[in-house]
């Protein structure tokens, strides 16, 4: 005979009380429940294997060869890797890539966090403004890059008016090393902040209002609530957003290709662009594969570091004790 207490618990979502629920379940009960078997994984595993693992493995294999894209593959052992370690262009590109990633994270995270929390409010004007603000999400990276290029032309665009505001007379913005670098950071931000805002908006809406109610009763100021409730409660969103941001920055490509072409003088020649020129301008597929492998290693390492040091892996709920 089931008690009313057991009946109530059963109606709760599984995740809330899993172990207690299992204890209450009878043997015959669990046997009739359809449980996912290993076969359910198969489509995802095949897809991931064919389109991610196999190409990745082939890239690593290719990095030990010399191949122009046709004909015989020459196995060259560690030649590409030796060349890579001694190639000042690779090191310079790595430095630029890491700078771009760091600067991108530093500018995008606070902006997206603030706008996201603001947009999470129930007011109607916020809903309208934030849906307008999300529009860049609908544009392709290529379109955005081309648009900004027209915009920044020193003679026919706005650069002549804008440049002096940033200490760049004559509108020579993307023609100067620093200007080009900042432009890439800005355009990437313009394009991606809306996406991360969306993450923060969703995250902020999930924070139970009782926390704010309690804080209000305690007499907490708005900024105290933001720093002591909102930000800690968004911890997991910050980690997720940061991983996406960092990995995304590491593989930025179209913006650089179309906006600066890695220039001026290599000032925005990031690793993915270097890989592209090695593979599809110089047709040195083996060397390009070695650069690609470095990118994979760097991106994986950085996301592991973020996950490890943020405590994300422990998966502790932000709603503990609620």
């Amino acid at each position: 005979m089931k008690t009313p207490q057991a009946e109530r618990e059963r109606s709760l979502p599984d995740s809330r009380l899993p172990h207690r629920k299992r204890a209450l379940r009878t043997k015959s009960d669990s046997d009739t429940l359809p449980r996912p078997g290993a076969a359910y994984l198969l489509p995802a595993v095949i897809f991931f294997g064919v389109f991610a693992v196999v190409p990745l493995a082939l890239v690593v294999v290719l990095s030990f060869s010399s191949w122009p894209g046709f004909g015989e593959i020459q196995w060259t052992g560690l030649d590409n890797w030796e060349r890579l370690l001694g190639d000042s262009r690779v090191w310079e590109s790595t430095r630029i890539t890491l700078m771009l990633t760091a600067l991108g994270w530093l500018t995008q995270t606070p902006m997206a966090l603030l706008i996201g929390v603001w947009a999470a409010g129930p007011q109607r004007n916020r809903a309208v403004l934030s849906s307008i603000f999300f529009l860049p999400l609908l544009l392709s990276s290529a379109a955005i890059a081309v648009l900004f290029h027209r915009f920044l032309d020193p003679n026919y665009g706005m650069a002549r008016e804008l440049g002096p505001l940033f200490g760049l007379p004559d509108g020579n913005i993307i023609g100067s090393s620093q200007g080009a670098f900042i432009t890439i950071v800005f355009v990437s931000g313009w394009q991606w902040i809306p996406f991360h805002t969306l993450l923060y908006q969703a995250g902020a809406r999930n924070i139970p209002t009782v926390l704010y109610d309690a804080a209000t009763i305690d007499g907490a100021s708005r900024s105290a609530m933001f720093w002591r409730i909102t930000v800690p409660q968004l911890r997991h969103t910050i980690v997720t957003s940061s991983v996406i941001m960092v990995v995304g920055s590491l593989i930025t490509f179209e913006t650089v290709l179309l906006l600066t072409g890695g220039g001026p003088g290599g000032a925005t020649r990031i690793l993915p662009y270097l890989m592209y020129t090695a593979g599809f301008e110089s047709f040195e597929m083996g060397y390009a594969a070695a650069i690609a492998t470095v990118l994979v290693v760097v991106a994986t390492t950085m996301s592991l570091i973020i996950v490890k040091f943020s405590g994300f892996a422990k998966m502790r709920s932000t709603l503990e004790g609620m």
Binding site: H149, L152, D153, N155, R160, D170, N172, I173
Partner: peptide, 16 residues
């Protein structure tokens, strides 16, 4: 070449 030539793309150079 002027002071902003490094910002000029090919398509915008002929019109100059």
């Amino acid at each position: 070449f002027g002071n902003a030539f490094a910002s000029v793309q090919y398509d915008d150079s002929g019109p100059l």
